[in-house]
Design a protein around this nucleic acid. Structure first.
Length: 495
RNA sequence: GCCCCCAUCGUCUAGGGGCCCAGGACGAAGCCCUCUCAAGGCUUAAACUGGAGUUCGAAUCUCCAUGGGGGCACCA
């Protein structure tokens, strides 16, 4: 029922306090999909108002992560835009002005309570088993006196003056009306004593000024949602469409992702941080597809490119319930997208992994092996263990693996020797030339193809599991293949 | 303790009162293909949290219970 003909302005608003994780990336994805679908704008806004928690490099990591995923933003700190600045610490005066408007209109008030007093207050409330809330000491101050104290430079914060009567009804696009009694909404601090705003003010002001039409954010904001709606209404502004996305749960489904889960994932070759994905061999396409479907259900074919997602995206189809992350599904989507990549593109993405493993990569050779390994890769880095032998001069088979099942070393050596004779007599060892005589040999010995080809596989590739044998031999070439076979015979005869 | 949100196979989900003895995907099991490993094809097991309503009829609407999640900061 959502109208997708009006350009949406959507933003992702992370705070640079740590690594960018799945939740942020998925919000960004949905933002991006909505923006592209409506031919609107996707904006990056950095919420760095908590100076103490800001970590150096985190902002860069966010920008790098979005670029790696292919979620190009139209406006942001490093690309500019008509609604900047896009870093909240650079918008300090704007927030202060808006806070003053609220104070003047009677929707906010200065508060001089010290953190120590607040602390004491909370402990008392806790002891009395009361709900924790600001007790309103400064709310009752005479406004003129308060203004005087502020003018005198007395340290203070500014609190939102929440009405204590009635109820607030806030509308979430996925959950409908959410109703909460006003007495349960605290007088939240909107300007801190350092002069910077809290999220409650900053995000509302920015969303309005930046003309955000749809606010997509995590469900952890649901509890302060009614407050936010009151702030927006106090200014007399129109509200955006609010969409609170479900949180991600740990793979077990019990509880939300923790630091421990992050470490555990890393140990298994996965990660909840975008920065790790590339190195682990995941593709942006796979990660995107995986994230998209955690919280959004599509009826049938679910392997989708970014463009297909844009086409099919529908905010009405988002789900409000929490989702446990499932890394096996990441593997699945990653493999599926690897198989979809054009050969030269896959080659380009694989090359860095071979290089990093110390191989010097011949591009023409790499291109030749792509068809042999494409559907066998789950992650890009799998290529090294699976196909590294193509770039080696010699291979080092494990002697025991050269012996075929059901045969002993002597018999295996015989098979290898005979195979050598057959192959060396051929004009070339291309697949069509080499397979028929070898098949005939298998036939003649009464052994299984498995046994004979298994010996050759280990001899020539150095591994028990490899791309198809004859295709591999063709790529490796006659000289090298025969040399490796000869080496293997030597090993077998020495056993 | 208080407030808010959520609830379909193990997991992600489709489902908008009859098209549902509930469909897809991942994962699992089996078979086919096969030189290993994959990919691919076919098949199987697997769910509407419980109880009251409303209705001719409820996975779908209402209420309660239960379970899960989030929040209760001069953090976002």
């Amino acid at each position: 029922m959502t109208d997708y003909t009006k350009p949406a302005r959507v933003r992702v608003a992370p705070s640079p306090t740590g690594h960018m994780h799945l939740g942020t990336a998925r919000t960004a994805l949905y933002d991006y999909l909505l923006a592209r679908k409506t031919e609107g704008k996707f904006i990056l806004r950095v919420e760095d108002t908590d100076v103490k928690r800001t970590v150096p490099g985190a902002e860069q990591e966010i920008m790098d992560g979005l670029r790696w995923l292919g979620l190009k933003y139209d406006e942001g700190p490093d690309v500019g835009g008509a609604f900047g600045p896009y870093r909240q610490t650079e918008r300090r005066d704007i927030y202060r002005q808006h806070a003053n408007i609220l104070v003047d209109k009677g929707f906010a008030y200065p508060c001089f309570c010290t953190p120590e007093r607040l602390d004491r207050m909370r402990r008392e409330q806790q002891a009395l088993k009361e709900s924790l809330h600001y007790d309103g000491t400064c709310r009752r101050l005479d406004p003129d006196e308060a203004a005087r104290r502020v003018a005198n430079g007395e340290p203070h914060v500014i609190r939102f003056k929440m009405s204590k009567d009635g109820a607030t009804i806030a509308h979430d696009h996925l959950r409908g009306d959410i109703s909460i009694e006003n007495k349960n909404i605290d007088d939240y601090v909107i300007i801190k004593s350092d002069g910077l705003p809290t999220y409650h003010l900053a995000a509302m002001v920015d969303d309005h000024l930046m003309q955000i039409t749809h606010v997509l954010r995590g469900a952890e904001w649901l509890s302060t949602f009614p407050l936010h709606v009151n702030v927006v209404r106090a200014f007399g502004w129109d509200e955006p469409v609010w969409i609170h996305l479900s949180v991600f749960l740990k793979p077990s489904g019990k509880g939300k992702l923790s630091k421990r889960d992050a470490e555990h994932a890393m140990h298994d070759g996965y990660s909840v941080f975008i920065k790790d994905m590339e190195e682990l061999g995941f593709t942006p396409e796979g990660v995107l597809n995986w994230m998209a479907l955690m919280g959004w259900g599509v009826p049938e074919e679910d392997v989708m490119s970014l463009d297909e997602m844009i086409n099919r995206f529908d905010i009405d189809g988002l789900t409000p319930s929490p989702a446990a992350i499932n890394f096996q599904k990441l593997d699945h989507f990653n493999g599926a997208h690897i198989r979809l990549l054009p050969g030269d593109e896959l080659a380009a993405r694989l090359k860095p992994f071979f290089v990093k493993a110390g191989y010097s990569v011949r591009d023409d050779l790499l291109l030749q092996i792509i068809p042999l390994i494409r559907e066998r890769l789950v992650t890009l880095d799998d290529c090294v263990a699976f196909a590294g032998f193509f770039f080696k001069e010699d291979v080092q088979p494990i002697p025991a693996e050269l012996i075929a099942k059901g045969l002993d070393a002597k018999q295996s050596a015989l098979v290898a020797r005979r195979s050598y004779e057959i192959l060396s007599a051929l004009p070339d060892v291309n697949h069509p030339t080499a397979e028929p005589p070898m098949r005939a040999y298998v036939e003649q010995t009464g052994l299984s193809a498995n046994q004979v080809f298994g010996i050759l596989r280990v001899a020539i590739t150095g591994q028990k599991v490899s791309p198809p044998l004859f295709e591999s031999i063709q790529v490796i070439g006659k000289d090298t293949s025969l040399k490796r076979l000869k080496d293997a015979i030597k090993i077998l005869e020495g056993l």
